[in-house]
Design a binder for these strands. Structure first.
Ligand code: SF4
Ligand code: SF4
Lengths: 153, 153
DNA sequence: TATATTTAAGACAAATTAGTCTTTAATAAA
DNA sequence: TTTATTAAAGACTAATTTGTCTTAAATATA
C-alpha cells in the first residue's frame, strides 16, 4: 500500500471539502464522516494533522467545523499526503536501504528513482480543484458506497 | 511504504542469491541472514513463501539451504513481490476505494493508472540477473552495512 | 546408528497502525 | 447565563505487521 489508511482518508476528506467548498463556510466533521463512511473520531484526528499543517482551519461550536485555508486550486494533493504520511514515499528506497543517494546507490536505483519521481510529480501537479472538477463532470466515486452525485444531495 | 518489510527482505535475499548463484549449490539461510543483517527466523519464513511460490528450492541437513529454482535471468522481481505482498499494489486504488475499474473510476484515476502501470512494468522487466550484473559492476549496496564487494568476501 | 546441521512449523511477543471512547474547551444562540 | 453544538486532546482497544523462540523433521556424515 503506497499511502496509509489515515492518509487515504485525508485525501478523500480533502476532495469532499473541495467539492462543497465555499469561502468562510465550515463543514462539520460528523457530516463528512457519515458521507464518506469514515470513523468520526479517526477522521477528526486526521483532520487535525491537516489543520496543523496549515491546509485547513477549524472552528468550534454550532455551525463550526473545518474549511480549506485556501482556494482548492491552490492546494495540491501532495500537501495532504505530506501532512499525514510525510514525504518519505518520494525519497526512500524501494528496498528500504538507509541513506539513499548519500552513499552508493542500490541495484534497483535507476528504474526506481524515475518511477518515484513520476509519482511525486503526479501528486505535486494535481490540485484539489482539478480533481473536484473532473469528479463532478464524470460523477466519480469518493466513498465505497456513493457516487459524488449521490454524495452531494 | 510501497512494499512491506517482509517483501523488501525477500527482494534483498533474492538479489543475494543471484549474486552467488551456482546451479545445485544451496545457500544457508543463516549465512544470508547474517550477511544481510536480517533476523534469521523472519527470513526463514519469508523464504518459505518464496519457495512455496516455486521460485526457490530448499534442502534440509548439512550443506542444505536454499537455491533458485531457475537461472536468475529467468526470474523477474515482480515474481518475488507477488509471492510475498501479492499483486494488489499494481491493481488497487491509490485512495483505497474498492472495485477499481469495475464501476466508475475515482478522481485520481487517470494519473494513478499510468503511474501504477509504470511501477508494474519496472518490476516486471527487471530480472534478478540484470540487477546482479549492474550491482557487481557498480559495487552497489545490498545491506545497510556492506557494499556488495564487502558482502561477497 | 548416532550426531550435527539444516529447514519447517507454529506458538508467542513486540511494535506499529487503525480505530473507539470519554472528557474538555470553545462558541453560538436561546 | 444556560444549553446545545462542535472540535481538541488523550486514554484506551483492536488489528496487523514484524520479529523471536522452541520444537520437530529431514539429511549428511562420521
Ligand atoms: S539509490 Fe535508489 S534503489 Fe538505491 S537505495 Fe536509493 S532509492 Fe533505493
Ligand atoms: S479508478 Fe483509479 S483512482 Fe479510481 S479507484 Fe480505481 S485506481 Fe483508484
Amino acid at each position: 500500500m503506497l499511502l496509509s489508511k489515515a492518509c487515504i482518508y485525508g485525501v478523500r476528506a480533502s476532495l469532499y471539502m473541495s467539492l462543497v467548498y465555499q469561502k468562510d463556510r465550515y463543514i462539520s466533521i460528523r457530516e463528512m464522516s457519515e458521507k464518506l463512511n469514515i470513523s468520526f473520531h479517526f477522521l477528526t484526528k486526521i483532520l487535525q494533522q491537516i489543520t496543523h499543517a496549515g491546509l485547513m482551519h477549524s472552528y468550534k461550536g454550532p455551525n463550526g467545523g473545518i474549511n480549506l485555508s485556501k482556494d482548492p486550486n491552490e492546494i495540491t494533493i501532495i500537501k495532504i499526503v505530506d501532512a499525514i504520511d510525510g514525504m518519505a514515499v518520494f525519497t526512500e528506497c524501494v528496498i528500504g536501504l538507509p541513506g539513499c543517494g548519500r552513499n552508493k546507490p542500490c541495484p534497483l536505483h535507476e528504474k526506481w528513482a524515475v518511477a518515484r519521481q513520476e509519482l511525486q510529480d503526479m501528486f505535486e501537479n494535481t490540485t484539489l480543484h482539478e480533481m473536484a472538477i473532473s469528479s463532478k463532470k464524470l460523477n466519480l466515486r469518493l466513498s465505497d458506497e456513493l457516487s459524488i452525485e449521490e454524495l452531494m444531495i
